[in-house]
Design a protein around this nucleic acid. Structure first.
Length: 845
RNA sequence: GCCCGAGUGGUGGAAUUGGUAGACACGUUGGACUUAAAAUCCAAUUCUAAUUAAAUUGGAGUGCCGGUUCGAGUCCGGCCUCGGGUACCA
């Protein structure tokens, strides 16, 4: 028997591709290029899950399709291999993270190769490889040189359990994203990158990118640009001014008090003697709160009067200055003018502490709420009275500018990027400290490698693990010969992934991170596919570094990723759970009304697919799927499930379905007894019908791959086999084109068939067929006939008459059933849509 | 709260510009082949009513309510539910 045997075919072709370097990236730059990129994985110890191959299969199909269309394709893979799990394992077992990482990488590589991805493995990169992170360090030095990397004493998110500082983005609901441990605020010396300097460009350049609009919105929200004014309030009996940022300068006449953040630098100076104790007590309380507590306590606002007053520059009135933790020290100026009448937070606070409220915007009629944030004319505002918000804003800003008490201003939510971690397994900073000053080491000394250490834990006093490597830490400044101390923080995991897409272009280039000639050819990335979890962090950071490198003259492009698509998550199999948490099988339940009920009891049942997780026990391992059905079935199923971007539940039955399709296609073309080509296949001329069926498939598959609609592409290939199964003979040319169309989806399967059809070269570079419009023409067009918008009958019209309105309508009226309707009614309107539909609007006589 | 996205058969989904809703699969049911099973092949499968041996014919139907249109899954207005992001950002 020579039935379809995936395991034999697949290992054979995987070996062939590797040995023949079938997917080696061309180095000539004469042909058009296409750069298809996957978000590279962190090689975790648990290996691939079925979510990984989803995006990877999508890009692989595009890569293979583009090659067959004459493009030079860059389709690489690598490892984002610095990271916490390997380090935690090292802490526990003493195994060097390098060893763990290497093991995991080998496992991942094997798994990816077993799915038949057409990566150019000669360009594999690894962020932990010194030859790679040499350039990560080099780029950091560029940032340092340009003043974009600086040290600061910042209150950071300190996670005692993890022994490290976390970025804001790594803290979720006051807990660490990894592990869910509590996080507290603690001031520490940290490296920070000035991403805020690029805020405006990061915002504006989103415009021309072919990214999902929702994702652009997420980045826009994250950057959080707001336009308003900075206003100076003179502090009574002090030389200092209090500067606030506001988006509503038009409401300044309603500013009845001020609030400054408890950490604000002026707090001590302005607090009066009789308020000192209260203020000190309040600040101590705030300091002790963890992030979590701060968030939980949002419902109840708290604050303390400082005893000081500020002078409202608009009307000269004295207003009290309070401190309260609902004002954040890190946004704007850390101080606000409170306008309770037009701001909900201020209203709440004013109500609680009995502060004055003055409306300065006339609320709409019937408004019964508290703070009014809607539109309306200004009131109680002297020279602004009667103006709309927009005009009032302009006028008050002019007034303040003339008075020297304020100016138009822009603020961003985006903060500078906290760039150091107290970990071992990360890129060391190429920095030494001489006389307490940070100083770059020479670029000749790169890569600065990690020292060997005995223990991977932080030191007892909160110093990073590298501080344990005393010999490495103590060094001398080669320029001055002075004693120097190495930086013991390391870079965060984002560092390596900020520029990896550039290294693939010229992985062995030693004159810089990327060879400029090839960069000009290959950049930007034409298609980048990955998970939505990187919507803001990785994608924003990478864009930032890219722009810096552009400014350094190293890159020719302003943006790295022209087109970006997020693949949707794959959930576990659908589960039916009864109220008491009992799992039910699908034949124990039935549909009733909106939901499902248990057959035996009639009780409501929850029907839902859940995220795959070890604890739920619903994780699907791709290795098992491959062992049972083959990699081609896995690829096909992952694409057939539904639209790429969508969240969808896994169904192993569905894999069987596509596997059946491959078996049917095999039997269509191969004689299972002899293992040779089916005798139905001959060198005859294709019939008109065969050409039509084939070219319909060509058209659909081509268009669908271009727009990443793989599910419908596969369905059209199924339609082809269903049709072809009914043919007595199949012209070889038709069979070959079909195999080419299927090959990006099921490459091993198609290589084998291609070979059996007598071709000696890999199908990977076969020419993609072009569809011919002529073959798609129908002999006749079927017109549905509607009466008052409801289909009542249909007629067949020969193609050459199909556009003839008069003729078609006449035929329609002659149709038996339609005639009946016409007997008792008169036609008041006739609708004719060429090649689509006829609609007769009737009125009873 | 705010910003996105999505609701279509028992299930995953299709219908891309408003033009026969349910392609293609899964599942289910019946049949063929088989000693039997698996595999395979054939047929049916939105709900509902009538009648029937079959065919057929009618009504309803794309989360809910309303609108525009000869015609709405698709466009507009108002809701509901679910998912994602974000949250004292002044």
């Amino acid at each position: 028997m020579h039935s379809y045997n995936p395991s034999a075919i697949e290992t054979k072709w995987q070996k062939y591709w590797l040995e023949n370097k079938t997917f080696k990236t061309p180095t000539d730059t004469s042909k058009p290029k296409f750069y298809v990129l996957d978000m590279f994985p962190y090689p975790s110890g648990s290996g691939l899950h079925v979510g990984h191959p989803e995006g990877y299969t999508a890009t692989d199909i595009v890569a293979r399709y583009k090659r067959m269309n004459g493009f030079n394709v860059l389709h690489p893979m690598g490892w984002d291999a610095f990271g916490l799990p390997a380090e935690q394992y090292a802490v526990k077992t003493g195994t060097h993270p390098k060893i763990t990482t290497e093991k995991n990488v080998n496992k991942f590589r094997e798994q990816l190769q077993a799915i038949g991805f057409s990566y150019d493995w000669d360009r594999e990169i690894n962020t932990t490889d010194p030859d790679y992170f040499k350039w990560t360090q080099w780029i950091f030095l560029k940032l340092f040189e340009r003043g974009l990397a600086y040290e600061d004493e910042v209150a950071v998110n300190w996670c005692p359990e993890l022994g490290t500082v976390l970025a804001n983005e790594e803290v979720i609901d006051g807990k660490s994203e990894v592990g869910g441990y509590p996080v507290v605020r603690k001031p520490m010396r940290q490296w920070v990158l000035k991403i805020t300097e690029y805020a405006e460009r990061l915002l504006n350049d989103l415009e021309d990118l072919d990214w999902p609009e929702s994702l652009k919105d997420m980045q826009r929200n994250w950057i959080g640009k707001s336009i308003g004014a900075e206003v100076d309030f003179q502090i009574k009996d002090h030389n200092d001014k209090l500067t606030v940022f506001t988006t509503r300068p038009d409401t300044i006449f309603g500013a009845t008090y001020m609030v400054i953040a408890p950490e604000h630098r002026l707090v001590n100076e302005i607090t009066t003697d009789d308020q000192k104790d209260a203020v000190a007590k309040y600040r101590a309380e705030v300091e002790l709160k963890s992030d979590l507590e701060r968030q939980e306590l949002t419902k109840e606002k708290t604050g303390v009067f400082t005893g000081a007053y500020a002078i409202n520059p608009a009307n000269g009135k004295e207003v009290p200055i309070w401190i309260a933790d609902y004002v954040l020290v890190s946004y704007g100026t850390g101080a606000i003018m409170a306008v309770p009448a037009q701001d909900e937070r201020d209203w709440e606070f004013a109500e609680k502490y009995d502060l004055e409220i003055v409306r300065t915007v006339q609320p709409e009629e019937g408004f019964e709420g508290k703070a009014y944030t809607g539109n309306g004319p200004a009131i109680n505002s002297d020279f602004l009275n009667g103006l709309k918000i927009k005009e009032a804003k302009q006028k008050i800003i002019r007034f303040l500018e003339e008075k020297g008490a304020g100016k138009k201003a822009v603020n961003y939510k985006l903060r500078d990027w906290l760039f150091s971690r107290q970990r071992y397994w990360g890129e060391p900073f190429p920095i030494i400290h001489v006389d307490g000053e940070a100083k770059a080491i020479s670029k000749d000394e790169l890569p600065l490698e990690l020292p060997e250490v005995e223990k991977y834990e932080p030191t007892g006093n909160g110093e990073p693990p590298l501080a344990n490597a005393t010999e490495w830490v103590k060094t001398t400044d080669p320029e001055t010969g002075k004693e120097a101390i190495r930086e013991t923080n390391t870079m965060p995991q984002w560092a390596g992934s900020c520029w990896y897409y550039l290294r693939y272009i010229s992985p062995d280039f030693d004159g810089g991170p990327v060879d400029p000639d090839y960069e000009k050819y290959w950049m930007p990335v034409d298609l980048y596919i990955g998970g939505a979890e990187h919507a803001v962090l990785h994608l924003l950071y990478a864009r930032f570094w890219h722009k810096v490198l552009y400014d350094c003259g190293i890159l020719s492009t302003k943006e790295p990723f022209q087109k970006l698509v997020n693949q949707g998550m794959i959930l576990g199999e659908m589960e039916y759970t009864s109220k008491d948490g009992k799992k039910l099988s699908d034949d124990e339940v039935e549909k009733k009304g909106d939901g499902f009920v248990e057959k035996s009891t009639g009780a409501k049942v929850e029907a839902r697919a859940h995220k795959m997780s070890k604890s739920r026990g619903n994780v699907i391992n791709p290795d098992n799927i491959i062992a049972q059905y083959g990699a081609d079935s896995l690829r096909l199923y992952e694409m057939f499930m539904g639209p790429l971007e969508q969240v969808k539940p896994w169904s192993t039955k569905g894999v069987e379905g596509v596997n059946r399709f491959l078996n049917r296609a095999w039997r269509l073309l191969i004689n299972e007894d002899s293992g040779e080509l089916n005798s139905k296949i001959n060198d005859g001329e294709p019939t008109k019908d065969q050409l039509k069926v084939l070219h319909e498939a060509i058209k659909k598959v081509t268009e669908d791959i271009e727009s990443l609609r793989f599910n419908t592409a596969i369905s059209s290939l199924m339609i082809f086999t269903n049709e072809a199964n009914q043919w007595n003979t199949i012209p070889k040319s038709i069979a070959q084109d079909f195999v080419i169309l299927l090959s990006p989806f099921a490459p091993h399967f198609c290589e084998e068939l291609w070979k059996l059809m007598g071709n000696n070269d890999s199908i990977a570079y076969a020419e993609w067929p072009e569809f011919v419009e002529e073959y798609l023409k129908e002999d006749s067009i079927l017109y549905p006939i509607q009466i008052n918008g409801k289909v009542r009958s249909e007629i067949n019209i020969p193609s050459d008459k199909a556009m003839d309105k008069e003729f078609v309508l006449e035929q329609a009226k002659q149709e038996e059933k339609i005639k009946e309707y016409l007997e008792s009614s008169e036609i008041i309107k006739e609708i004719f849509v060429p090649k689509r539909i006829i609609n007769l609007v009737l009125k009873p006589r």
